[in-house]
Computed example of a mutant assay.
Amino acid sequence: MTTRSSANLPIAMVLLGTGSLLWIRAALRTPGALDMTPSVDGCLTVGIVGVLLALLHGITYPTALLSIAAPIALVQFLATGGSGVAFLPVLGIELTALGLFGLPLSRLPRRRPAVTAPARSLSAAHSAPS
């Protein structure tokens, strides 16, 4: 599990607010903007599950967003040909989900660093009979 950081909450709030505004705006402009087609479902799965798996493997929240979510969003943008009709709702839903992931990460207890003890030799503690 990833560690708590003071930057997680502001990042999560910005993502949550921006994402919500994007998909609400897209839904108001185009009635079918939030229809779940296979391509939209695939984009959401890759974007959300990829970041979730990174968080489960101990990558910090900001690093997971920059190293996984940003390149996936760029590929999604390039795949849609830059058309805002198909890209903005997917980006909005992804940002909302990533913001929701960040809210509990800002409240996790901090990890304590592992205590390293000096290594002891077994031969010095227990001498073998000769």
Rank of each mutant, 00 (worst) to 15 (best):
M13V: 06
M13W: 06
M13K: 09
M13E: 10
V14N: 10
V14F: 06
V14P: 11
L15T: 03
L15G: 04
L15N: 08
L16Y: 06
G17N: 04
T18N: 07
T18R: 13
T18Y: 05
G19Y: 01
G19V: 00
G19D: 00
S20D: 03
L21A: 07
L21T: 08
L21S: 06
L22T: 04
L22H: 07
W23C: 08
W23P: 10
W23A: 14
I24A: 02
I24W: 02
I24F: 02
R25D: 03
R25K: 06
R25Y: 03
A26D: 01
A27I: 02
A27Y: 01
L28A: 04
L28W: 11
L28N: 07
R29D: 01
R29C: 01
T30P: 13
T30R: 10
P31D: 05
P31S: 10
P31I: 03
P31F: 07
P31T: 09
P31W: 08
G32K: 15
A33V: 11
A33F: 11
A33D: 05
L34P: 00
L34M: 09
L34G: 05
L34E: 01
L34Y: 01
D35L: 09
D35K: 15
D35P: 15
M36Y: 02
M36L: 02
M36P: 13
M36H: 09
M36C: 02
T37Y: 00
T37I: 00
P38G: 00
P38Q: 00
S39C: 02
S39D: 09
S39Y: 02
V40C: 03
V40F: 00
V40M: 08
D41P: 05
D41F: 01
D41C: 02
D41L: 02
D41S: 07
G42P: 00
G42C: 00
G42I: 04
G42K: 05
C43W: 03
L44F: 06
T45M: 12
T45V: 07
T45L: 09
V46D: 12
V46H: 14
I48A: 04
I48T: 06
V49F: 07
G50F: 02
G50S: 13
G50P: 09
G50M: 13
G50T: 12
V51W: 10
V51S: 09
L52V: 13
L55H: 14
L55W: 13
L56E: 11
L56Q: 15
H57K: 15
H57E: 14
G58T: 15
G58W: 12
G58D: 11
G58M: 08
I59C: 14
I59K: 14
I59L: 12
T60D: 08
T60W: 03
T60V: 10
T60S: 15
Y61R: 15
Y61G: 13
Y61W: 11
P62G: 03
T63Q: 14
T63L: 07
T63G: 03
A64Y: 06
A64V: 10
A64G: 12
A64M: 08
L65V: 13
L65H: 15
L65S: 10
L65M: 09
L66Q: 12
L66C: 11
S67M: 10
S67F: 06
S67H: 12
S67K: 15
S67Y: 05
S67G: 11
